[in-house]
């Protein structure tokens, strides 16, 4: 069997103030797979994502493409793992969109023309090439989110790690993001509360609560387990509910339309 591209063994992390965030996480993702990471607020999802490229590390082992994440290999690991933060204002820190998307490739020591090509390719992918010379501050939230994605796509990563990619996105931009991610042939790890998004995009799902993985498996299998989800602050998504095709309860009774005889 092929070695998993992401492999975590007994990863533990405690914040300096003593708050335990991860209490022994074991997780593996096969190459080309898309894993949805779900869990209640404060479960440790974002902390876990920061372990995947060595930003945070304390105890346990994290392996990316078979290489153990250590200080010595950080440059290599960060070239393979592209992490997009939830807040695009944190992800986009350079004065123009071009500089932001070029930041990663230039740090990977790509020569000027290759870096420029990578920037143009990444911006074309997210359909934001015309905004190349603009300042990030002057973009809409949806545009910022797409450019945040371009900032890591320009590094040509093998693993794409996204933290809440659909938060605050309107339906049109959310749909655009789903279509874009579907087309990207890389391994993806996505932390989100948007369970419908997980259903559409992910091959498997892991539930994280209080710093441990409490369940991992196929999307339909995990997301239709009402008892499991409710005991961890989640709920079965609407499209997987058995009563999903029923009318919205009470709609008819609460109708404000008066019967015809009343009008007459």
């Amino acid at each position: 069997m092929e070695q998993p591209i992401v492999e975590l063994q007994d990863v533990r992390f405690t914040y300096p103030d003593g708050t335990p965030a991860l209490a022994g996480v074991d997780l593996s993702v096969a190459r080309g797979q898309t894993l949805g990471l779900i869990g209640p607020n404060g479960a440790g999802k974002s902390t876990l994502l920061l372990h995947l490229n060595g930003i945070l590390k304390q105890e346990g082992s994290v392996r990316i493409c078979g290489t153990r994440v250590s200080d010595r290999d950080l440059a290599l690991i960060r070239g393979k793992v592209g992490l997009v933060f939830q807040d695009p204002d944190a992800q986009l820190f350079m004065p123009t969109v071009f500089d932001d998307v070029a930041f990663g490739p230039l740090n990977m020591r790509l020569p000027g023309h290759a870096a420029r090509d990578a920037v143009i390719r990444a911006l074309e992918l997210v359909d934001m090439l015309p905004a190349m010379k603009r300042s990030s501050h002057h973009l809409s939230f949806g545009e910022k989110k797409r450019i945040s994605l371009a900032t890591v796509l320009s590094m040509n990563p093998e693993i794409l790690v996204l933290d809440e990619p659909t938060s605050n996105l309107d339906p049109k931009h959310r749909r655009g993001l789903i279509e874009l991610l579907k087309e990207l042939p890389v391994t993806k790890v996505i932390a989100t509360h948007d369970l419908e998004f997980v259903i559409e995009l992910c091959d498997s799902v892991a539930v994280l609560d209080r710093g441990t993985i409490v369940a991992q498996g196929g999307v339909a299998e995990v997301l239709s387990d009402k008892r499991l989800l409710e005991s961890h602050g989640l709920e079965v998504p609407h499209s997987l509910r058995k009563d999903a095709h029923c009318h919205i309860p009470g709609n008819r009774e609460k109708s404000l339309h008066l019967p015809l005889e009343h009008i007459q």
């Binding site: 070239g79 933060f85 500089d99 070029a102 990663g104 230039l106 740090n107 000027g112 890591v152």
Partner: peptide
Amino acid sequence: YLAMCCRGYTGPVRAM
């Protein structure tokens, strides 16, 4: 700063 580190920042700033 974390976002910068994620994209390979190690100290020197490179720009075009």
